[in-house]
């Protein structure tokens, strides 16, 4: 019974982690495309604009990575508690 519950919780976390990973793909794609488009021009001003916008995408990625870290630490904490008990 206890094991079944643990598996269900793990599956729920995995699903949540998948969602977060999916969310991370958005700014990562935007970052890559923005830099590549900036390079296509080859002009200093457009590259600068691309870098500025790319930094904003980095910020979005940082936020999402932070969310994933929090989620993972919750999972690890719970696993440790289960092992102790």
């Amino acid at each position: 019974m206890h094991e079944e519950m643990s598996v269900a919780v793990e599956e729920e976390w995995l699903a949540e982690l998948c969602d977060k990973l999916h969310d991370l793909c958005q700014p990562l794609t935007a970052l890559q495309c923005r830099l590549e488009i900036g390079m296509m021009h080859g002009r200093l001003d457009t590259m600068r604009a691309a870098i500025e916008e790319a930094l904003h995408e980095c910020e979005r990625m940082n936020n999402r990575v932070h969310t994933m870290q929090t989620l993972l630490s919750r999972v690890l904490e719970r696993q440790q508690k289960e092992r102790r008990s």
Binding site: P27, T29, A30, C33, R34, I37, H56
Partner: peptide, 15 residues
Amino acid sequence: DDAALGLFLQKGLKL
């Protein structure tokens, strides 16, 4: 629906 990604793709494809 991701505004930033949509705009970048639009910009790039226009180029």
